[in-house]
Design a protein around this nucleic acid. Structure first.
Lengths: 154, 154
DNA sequence: TATTGTTATACTCTATAACTATA
DNA sequence: TATAGTTATAGAGTATAACAATA
């Protein structure tokens, strides 16, 4: 093996190779790249999947509540949720207690799709865990939860 | 403390609260939000900072080599590097060995700015480490490096 | 006055196709 | 034929301003 083989020499990342922000970004892209095709089969984005999951767990919650929980601005949430309604996955009903608010819930079709998405997500998580090894995977989750729970500016 | 105080009840995330992809995304956004203002003071984006760092560590490297190292498409790299050249931070010289290639290096101004950026980055990393605690921070880096080093499709 | 949902709009990031000049 | 750099362009994702209806 010569010093400069046909294999392209990777450049030196310098301090980036232990920069938590850089590593988080690259890791997020790699992990998303793994689950993206499974979701795309159902014409669903990661944001869509998260929204369906939260509505399922919190039926009757309002749009802005769901949006804020996921860090999505209410203004950007409108086309997303309207598309899901148009697809027959989500029901948008007037709130009985607040006439400004729209209560969200999943339709039967939405529940059925979500079940399939959860299965795909679990298979994806298993791949990530296998790739990392159980010990490294387990060590990862707690610090990530701590960072992820940092409240963003409202 | 009543069950439903004025504090808005956070909705249930369901399986998302331990979904590695969701946590990576939220964690990345939180960490970026911390360093963003420091970089913005110098009119520098996270991508700019990464590019300057890699050029500094690999003077003479070509555009596409630097771009690929950072997961940036060469086509999107053009306006980024041209802006840095226009700001007098980066030198784009014809490669002596390959007339197709542009050899990148930092100017004195680029080196000076990068030193200030590295200082800001270190302060940021210290904040993240303090927030997490040294043990959780240390546990985080190795699995992240493993995930971040997954080669993306060329 | 504040909040829910809405429209319109702009800006950044990222992706694709096609080209040139070199190798 | 393949690669380095380029242009043009299109699509996401995200951001701000302003508004109507309701609290």
């Amino acid at each position: 093996m010569t010093q400069f083989s046909e294999v392209v020499m990777a450049l030196d990342l310098g301090p980036l190779d232990s920069h938590v922000g850089y590593l988080l970004r690259r890791a997020q892209l790699a992990v998303f790249a793994d689950i993206l095709p499974s979701l795309a089969e159902h014409d669903v984005s990661p944001a869509d999947y998260a929204v369906l999951t939260v509505i399922d767990r919190n039926p009757g919650a309002g749009q802005s509540q769901v949006a804020e929980t996921l860090g999505i601005q209410k203004t950007n949430f409108v086309p997303l949720i309207r598309r899901m309604e148009a697809r027959g996955l989500v029901l948008r009903a007037p709130s009985p207690t607040d006439r400004r608010s729209v209560a969200l819930s999943l339709t039967a079709a939405g529940e059925a799709l979500l079940a399939r998405l959860h299965a795909a997500a679990q298979a994806h998580i298993d791949r990530v865990r296998d790739h990392l090894g159980a010990d490294r995977y387990d060590a990862l989750l707690e610090p990530l939860q701590r960072l992820a729970s940092v409240s963003r500016p409202s």
